[in-house]
């Protein structure tokens, strides 16, 4: 069942490639503009890199949140999901996974290439990619709760940022922190453990919270 939802959302994304590319281009542009604006001072760039890449990933992921449920809401598919004999939490999990595959994975894949602009050493690039790999699913899962709560509201886009951004902050701190720690020669395992913990907690709690929010928004 989850597979059906993932397959459908990927199919829809393939038919509307512009939406997917918007997120990716936004990420590429933001990350690429900083070296131009700050200047070619390698030491400064190296220090700034993790923060910039992570903030850009955060905003890029948020950019697509509004679309997570709104399409299904306007064409009536969401009603059918609410009335499915399969648990709504499972369906929501499928939607979050699809959102991550569409918006998160491309960012993870392109991040090492963008990191080169900041003269990051190979190890830092690897840690950056891994931290994004663990952190971006958390962004999709937490974002799903916000998207569900603001469903059908006017000006929901602003509201969703207000709701979701505070919850994104820990992921940002420990995601960027992992790269900084590895660049400073300290271990990054602690940061990764915490990112893993965030991931586990959000996998368990977010589908349930999102399903409850959807029922409230639709009721």
């Amino acid at each position: 069942m989850i597979l059906w939802i993932i397959k459908r959302d990927l199919l829809l994304a393939m038919r509307r490639r512009a939406d997917v590319l918007t997120t990716l281009f936004f990420f590429i542009i933001v990350v690429s503009l900083f070296p131009l604006g700050v200047g070619p001072e390698m030491n400064t760039l190296r220090i700034m890199a993790p923060g910039i890449v992570w903030v850009a990933a955060l905003l890029a992921s948020m950019l697509a949140l509004g679309r997570m449920f709104s399409g299904d809401y306007t064409d009536g598919t969401l009603e059918q999901m609410l009335l499915s004999p399969v648990s709504l939490s499972a369906l929501v999990m499928g939607k979050a996974i699809a959102h991550w595959l569409i918006t998160g994975v491309p960012l993870v894949l392109i991040a090492p290439v963008l990191g080169i602009q900041y003269d990051l050493p190979a190890e830092s690039l690897m840690v950056l990619t891994l931290s994004l790999l663990m952190g971006t699913p958390v962004l999709s899962l937490i974002g799903a709760i916000g998207a569900a709560l603001t469903l059908g509201l006017r000006g929901g886009g602003v509201l969703v940022s207000l709701l979701v951004l505070p919850l994104y902050v820990p992921v940002l701190i420990f995601g960027a922190g992992a790269v900084e720690a590895s660049a400073a020669g300290l271990g990054f395992e602690a940061h990764f453990s915490l990112l893993g913990a965030f991931l586990l907690v959000s996998v368990v709690c977010s589908p349930w919270a999102t399903a409850a929010s959807l029922r409230i928004s639709m009721g």
């Binding site: 069942m1 059906w4 459908r8 199919l11 829809l12 038919r15 509307r16 399409g71 306007t74 064409d75 009536g76 598919t77 009603e79 059918q80 999901m81 009335l83 499915s84 004999p85 399969v86 369906l91």
Partner: peptide, 28 residues
């Protein structure tokens, strides 16, 4: 139970077959 609202749940970008198969799959 089967509910058909007046919105129908039809996705513009999917073909008729895909729409039908997916709405049936959603209904278990």
């Amino acid at each position: 139970m089967t509910y058909l609202g007046h919105l129908g749940g039809i996705k513009d970008d999917l073909t008729a077959i895909e729409n039908l198969r997916i709405s049936c799959a959603l209904a278990g």
